[in-house]
């Protein structure tokens, strides 16, 4: 896998999570309505925008940086393993 595979706007498809595996889908995916949904935009130049949930439910966008070392994804201050990536599905494991 490479930076190009992971670049894009991914939103957390939390309905599909299994145990410690987190499933993400492209932002264009037809998600069911949820009380909130987080995600991130990974740009090829190493910058990112995190889409978060604010303290009164308004949405937040926070800039940051990301890096891929082998199958290790560093996302802001967080480190996760890339389990699989396809154009319509990204699976990460918490580490």
């Amino acid at each position: 896998m490479n930076v190009k595979d992971l670049s894009g706007h991914w939103m957390h498809s939390h309905e599909e999570d299994r145990d410690d595996e987190l499933v993400f889908r492209p932002a264009s995916h037809q998600f069911p309505r949820a009380r909130g949904r987080t995600g991130f935009e990974l740009r090829p130049n190493g910058t990112l925008i995190e889409h978060g949930i604010g303290p009164t439910d308004q949405r937040t966008q926070t800039p940051g940086r990301w890096r891929l070392d082998g199958d290790t994804l560093k996302l802001g201050g967080q480190t996760m393993k890339v389990v699989s990536v396809a154009p319509d599905r990204l699976v990460l494991r918490k580490s």
Partner: peptide, 8 residues
């Protein structure tokens, strides 16, 4: 990390 909310 702390998330975007707290960063904002």
């Amino acid at each position: 990390r702390t998330c975007g909310t707290m960063a904002v």
